[in-house]
Design a protein around this nucleic acid. Structure first.
Lengths: 223, 223
DNA sequence: CGACGGTATGGCACTCAGTACCCCCTGTAA
DNA sequence: TTACAGGGGGTACTGAGTGCCATACCGTCG
């Protein structure tokens, strides 16, 4: 029933536009009562994003089970969950993207949806950084950066009409974020000698940036 | 007139709550016609944020004149413009914050407002990073991080009831962002020797983190 | 002085999203 | 058959937002 309504609604939105379609039009095409529409979708906008509710639940469950992973890695993987949801139905995602772009009301609604993902990630990071200095701040900034990177890659994939490798684009974008804040355990790619006031580092050019930063941070004793 | 309406609206929102106040209530108290309200505010929500329009204009003007500053510094200063707007009327800002927190509709509206600031910053950074690799991605990620840091500091200041130094809190939050992506010219605090595959660095412990990162980045030839 | 055009405001009527309330239909148990 | 419960339908209402027109004010020109 939810599905029937969502399908009817989306068809009409594509045919006449979102604002030109009334809820009465939707229920007429779906062959159900007007009251039933609002039983399944709290608002007209919700019919455009019928799958985000369950995706958010997936992400929440994923993060709850990720208490031993490296925090930034975990939220990056969480972002990939969202990406995969989009990538599962490329045509639908692309059409919805175009629709969302040209309807201001849908753009702001999408914002609130994205915000819930971001808050979920930030909440997870806040728990993981509970003991760290500026934990809450770091959590929110990292969550925002991860979401921004994900959205940048996702949008350019959607703009291209669903061509190309969305996963690779998101991986690349997330890598840039990790270069700023990654804090995985450093491996042998970079080493540091600590003196009183001066640090001497030997770094392989092949070292991932985030590992270098990690080493520099711990060597300098900065946060 | 805008001011009269905004004041009447805000009083009523505090007295009865946002949703319990109709536009008719507002215009009745303001002593004007209902139609006039919508001439000055496109929606009821806009009456809660009467000053963001001009603040956004200020930020836009500021960034247009900042074509020679360091990009990340420029957007951080742009964020401070918003902070100062809040800090100008602490009591009003705090009351509005509490109101916004308990009304979901206002929270999503605020999101769209914040988003416009973020887009303005991202647009500026995109221009400045036009030649850089992944310029658009970097622009959006940095803008998101700056906004998140700013909001984190702003919100904790608002939660405290407007006590304490908001400017200092924001400065501290923005510093954390710069530690991730700052790219100011490196000074003599850190030096690097470049070999074929290995980099040897000598770093003062007093060096600001972002300068070290800058040196590491350029030494490793990573973007 | 009066006619005139532009601008700001008020009033009225309308559409439509969203809600409260009640009804009906259907399936199940006694 | 009645009793009951629950998903769905219908109706009427509130209130935001819009379009259209009337009105009042104000400076200018004849």
């Amino acid at each position: 029933m939810r599905e029937v309504l969502a399908k009817a609604a989306f068809q009409l939105f594509l045919e006449r536009g979102f604002e030109q379609t009334t809820v009465d039009d939707i229920v007429a095409r779906a062959g159900v009562g007007r009251r039933s529409f609002f039983r399944y979708f709290p608002s007209k906008e919700d019919a455009v994003f019928p799958d985000h509710e369950s995706c958010l639940a997936d992400m929440t469950a994923f993060l709850e089970a990720a208490d031993d992973a490296e925090p930034v890695d975990a939220v990056c993987d969480a972002a990939r969950i969202v990406l995969r949801m989009y990538a599962t139905n490329p045509e639908f995602s692309v059409q919805r993207y175009r629709l969302t772009q040209e309807v201001p009301g849908l753009r702001t609604y999408e914002l609130s949806v994205v915000r819930r993902y971001e808050r979920t990630m930030a909440g997870y990071l806040r728990r993981r950084y509970a003991d760290a200095e500026d934990g809450s701040l770091r959590a929110e900034v990292i969550a925002a950066a991860v979401v921004a990177a994900h959205n940048n890659a996702l949008r350019s994939w959607l703009r291209s009409g669903g061509e190309g490798d969305a996963e690779a684009a998101v991986d690349h974008a997330l890598e840039l974020v990790r270069n700023g804040w990654g804090s995985a355990a450093a491996s042998g790619d970079a080493g540091a000698d600590v003196d009183d006031d001066v640090v001497v580092m030997v770094v392989s050019k092949r070292a991932p940036m985030w590992r270098v930063v990690q080493r520099v941070e711990s060597a300098l004793g900065q946060d």
